[in-house]
């Protein structure tokens, strides 16, 4: 039985107080809570501060390219569906450069868990506008305040076909671990957007700001996360500043329904074909 330490590798280099520390910790605790062994889990990240998470997660890792964690993770999952695949990255990665891939993975219902560390800013490049920055937010690349409306990831994911949509906050590890466990267990695409404050460059959306504004939907017994329209309405009402499991539905995962779907993971296939099989493939050209 693996322990949290088995899911750790080397020391992260994030700024002290960075929200990403608790995201990593919650990922590790969720894996232990689900009884997983490190070799069963593969963490795929993009780049930026959040992208470093794959190096420090004790399972297999792939620190891929900016915005490309989702296609990398898709390739891995379809090659070996036995692996638990967690894609992780920042808001620039998932909603900026990689947005197209995120949407397609949602509608395909690829069985991966996508954790986005959303700090509303580009941290590693020392404070630039992110697609999730609030309107009017001042950064080095928006000196007079952003003129753009931010992406609303939760609403977008529900509409696009993500079969599990949740939001967590780095300031509430207990809830985050529970959400991660549910997301990993969920069969199909799980988007978990995590408010993970950047303590160095975002002086607006701080821990205190989030604590003050967040509405915890998990505590609302009247809320039904299987009702799509209700979920959209509630998220809209709180301007997306909420946590909890927002939406879930049961739908077959892509690797179960795609052409060539099979019980045997691709990595276990015997590649050598019998001579008669090779011959019959060749003979289809004797037309």
């Amino acid at each position: 039985m693996a322990k949290v330490i088995d899911f750790k590798y080397d020391k992260p280099t994030w700024c002290p107080g960075c929200g990403d520390y608790t995201v990593l910790a919650a990922m590790q605790q969720a894996c232990v809570g689900l009884g997983l062994e490190p070799e069963q889990v593969c963490c795929v990240s993009g780049i930026g501060c959040a992208g470093k998470i794959a190096q420090h997660f004790g399972g297999y890792g792939f620190h891929s390219l900016h915005g490309r964690s989702i296609p990398t993770a898709t390739g891995i999952k379809l090659a070996n569906q036995e692996l638990v695949v967690i894609a992780a990255g920042g808001d620039g990665d998932g909603y900026g450069i990689g947005l197209g891939h995120s949407l397609h993975a949602m509608r395909r219902n690829i069985d991966i868990t996508y954790i986005v560390m959303d700090n509303h800013i580009y941290g590693l490049t020392t404070g630039k506008l992110s697609p999730n920055s609030q309107k009017g937010f001042k950064t080095k690349t928006s000196p007079k305040g952003s003129a753009e409306d931010p992406i609303r990831p939760v609403e977008m994911a529900i509409v696009t076909g993500s079969s599990f949509v949740a939001q967590a906050f780095s300031g509430n590890v207990k809830q985050m671990v529970s959400i991660f466990e549910q997301g990993i267990k969920h069969k199909g695409f799980s988007l978990i957007n995590v408010f993970s404050p950047c303590v160095t460059f975002n002086k607006v959306n701080t821990y205190d700001w989030f604590k003050e504004h967040i509405v915890n939907m998990d505590e609302d017994e009247s809320f039904d996360p299987t009702n799509r329209m209700d979920a959209l309405r509630r998220v809209h009402e709180v301007e997306s500043v909420c946590t909890g499991v927002i939406y879930r539905e049961e739908r077959p995962a892509f690797h179960e329904t795609m052409l060539g779907a099979s019980e045997t993971a691709g990595v276990h296939l015997d590649l050598d074909l019998a001579e008669e099989e090779m011959q019959s493939l060749i003979d289809q050209f004797r037309r």
Partner: peptide, 20 residues
């Protein structure tokens, strides 16, 4: 795939996972 960027990167993911 949705585009050739994704196509090539998916192939890299699958190769990493041990499938040709």
């Amino acid at each position: 795939a949705e585009d050739e960027i994704a196509a090539c990167i998916m192939a890299i993911g699958a190769n990493y996972a041990g499938v040709r």
